[in-house]
Design a binder for these strands. Structure first.
Length: 249
DNA sequence: GAGTACAGTATCGGCACACC
DNA sequence: GGTGTGCCGATACTGTACTC
């Protein structure tokens, strides 16, 4: 079961955590999917980490984290890690959440670049390698081209600049190439980065971490792939879609 | 050093089955 | 026959540990 539900109002698009989050202290993160934490009552438990990336800067021992509890007997782990902290800044670490949030925002017409489409489908297979696109928008009355949207969760930042990726990602590069091929076939393609933290005013590919990916972003833009970056306000209550932010090469 | 298996969960497609 | 529901397997995600 999802650990959140998306609430769409006239003024904002929010992913609200359900059940409410529980505060804890991070002890260690290990094996990609697992993190040991200490709850406020002193219990030490293992939480599932939805973010399989390196989570650079977010795994400091002793840092504040927020979890959702589960009572599903089919799950091995009864806690899911949702929010980390870098200093005082809360950072959303659930990589599943941006896909839902962006899809709901697109359907609600809250993302200008995706207004006008009447059909939005998630996880649609496409391309020669049968990858799955995060969101496929169709049915635009003035643009017959389907629009392929790949959504990435951004958690890394440096001095007000959001950075992606936080580790070398061959798969991310593959997604960029797939989008280039989609454009070459006459379709529309968008690389959508959702920055799950509120302390960034800019976005840039993390060239120092993955130069190949940074070059891949530039090549994709040259090929006609659109790059969108939106911020998000993160709190223990939920994650709210913010405004577009600037991208720098 | 290179290649591979593994880790936990969400999601989707395919299939079987029940019901109208 | 058509529709709805539930179950199961495949897939996605990528760092780490292990084997060759």
């Amino acid at each position: 079961m999802p650990t959140f539900h998306v609430d769409v109002s006239q003024t904002q698009i929010r992913a609200l955590f359900s059940p409410p989050l529980v505060q804890a202290t991070l002890l260690r993160r290990y094996k990609r999917f697992l993190a040991d934490v200490r709850l406020s009552d002193g219990r030490e438990v293992t939480a599932h980490c939805m973010n399989p990336g390196s989570m650079k800067g977010l795994t400091a021992e002793g840092s504040l984290v927020w979890l959702t509890p589960h009572d599903d007997p089919k799950r091995k782990l009864q806690w899911t890690w949702q929010i980390a902290h870098e200093g005082a800044c809360p950072v959303g670490v659930n990589t599943n959440l941006p896909n839902h949030l962006v899809a709901a925002a697109a359907e609600a017409g809250a993302i200008e670049a995706l207004t006008g489409y009447t059909s939005f489908r998630r996880e649609v297979r496409y391309g020669a390698e049968r990858s799955r696109i995060d969101l496929l928008a169709e049915g635009h009355p003035k643009d017959a081209r389907p629009c392929y949207v790949e959504i990435k969760s951004v958690t890394l930042a440096d001095a007000g600049t959001a950075l992606f990726p936080d580790a070398v990602t061959a798969r991310g590069l593959k997604h960029l190439r797939e989008l280039e091929r989609v454009v070459a076939q006459g379709h529309r393609a968008i690389m959508f980065y959702l920055v799950q933290r509120a302390d960034c005013q800019r976005f840039a590919p993390a060239r120092s971490i993955d130069p190949a990916y940074a070059e891949g972003v530039l090549a994709a833009k040259d090929a006609g792939v659109e790059v969108l970056v939106y911020s998000a306000q993160v709190s223990p209550e939920g994650i709210t879609l913010g405004a577009p932010i600037l991208t720098t090469p």
